[in-house]
Amino acid sequence: MSVAERAVDDVPNPVPSDAADTLVDKQLSEPALVRSPQARKPWLKRKLPQLRAFVFAIISLVLFVALWHVLTENRVSFHVRFINVPSPKQVLEKAEAAFKSAMFFEHARISCRRIGFGFVIAALIAIPLGLVMGRYKMIREFVTPVVEVIRPIPAIAWVPMSIMLWPSNEESIVFITFLGSFFPILLNTIAGMGAVDPVLVRAAQSLGASERQIFRKVYFPACLPSIFTGLAVGMGVAWVSLIAAEMISGQFGIGYFTWEAYSLVQYADIALGMITIGVLGLLSSLLIRLFGNLLMPWKS
C-alpha cells in the first residue's frame, strides 16, 4: 500500500505513490557504501592497539607489586618507613584466610548495601531535581542558594550532625553516602540541561511535541551523557564519604574493617581492606559505565 492510499482521509497532501521511485537518485543516495567492503586487515594488526594496552596494563601492575615487594621485604626506611608495611605475600596469605571467613564478606556486603542505598536515593532525587532546575529558571533561582551553601561542606563533616539526626547508625552512614553523591549528580544534570542544543528543542516543537514530550524525548536523552558523568563522579565521592563515615562511626563495613585492623595491629588486614575498597570502587564505576553504554547506544 502506498502512502497516498494510507493517508487519504486525514492527510490532504499525501506523497504520490510513485514518489519513492521517481525521487531516488542512486548516485545521490548511495555514495561510497555501494562499493564492496575492502579486504580487512589481518586480525592481529586490527587488534594491535587493544593488545598493546592489555600487555601494558599487566606489566604496569606487575611492576607495582614488584616494587611493593622489594620495599617491604627489605624493610626500607628512608624517611618513609616500610618497616611495618605488610608485603604482598603477607597480604595474600591474609586474603586467603579472610576469604574463608564469613565476617570479611559481611563487611564488604554491608558497605555495598550502604553505597547502594545512599547512591540510588541520591540519583533518584538529584536527577529529576536537576532536570527540573535546568528547565525552569524560577525553580533554579529558588533552589540554587541552598545548594550552594550546603555543597561546599564535605560529607565527612556531616558525621556528627548525621549521628544526631538519624535514629540509627546505619541510617546516618547511608545519609552521609547519599550526601556525597548527591551534589555531583545534581550539578552535572543541571549543566547538561544548560547545554541542550536549542535547535533540537525547536525541531521537536515543529514536529508537534508537547512540553512534556519535549522533556522526555529531547531534554532527558540530551542530558544523559552529563547525568552519567555525574553518576560516575558521584559514585567516587560516595565511596570516599562511606569509608570516612565507617571509620569514624561504623561497627561494620569495609572502612571499619580497615580501621579496626590498625587498632588490632593487624597490618596485613589494613592493606587487604584498602585493596578491597579499591576493587569495589572500580567495580561500581565499571557498572555505571556499562549501564551508561547500554542506555546510550548512539555514543561511542
Binding site: D197, V199, L200, R202, A203, K217
Partner: peptide, 13 residues
C-alpha cells in the same frame, strides 16, 4: 509548518 534548519538538528540519540 515543517522546519529544516541550517545547523544539523537530528536527534543524536
Amino acid at each position: 509548518r515543517g522546519m529544516v534548519f541550517q545547523q544539523y538538528s537530528l536527534f543524536p540519540w
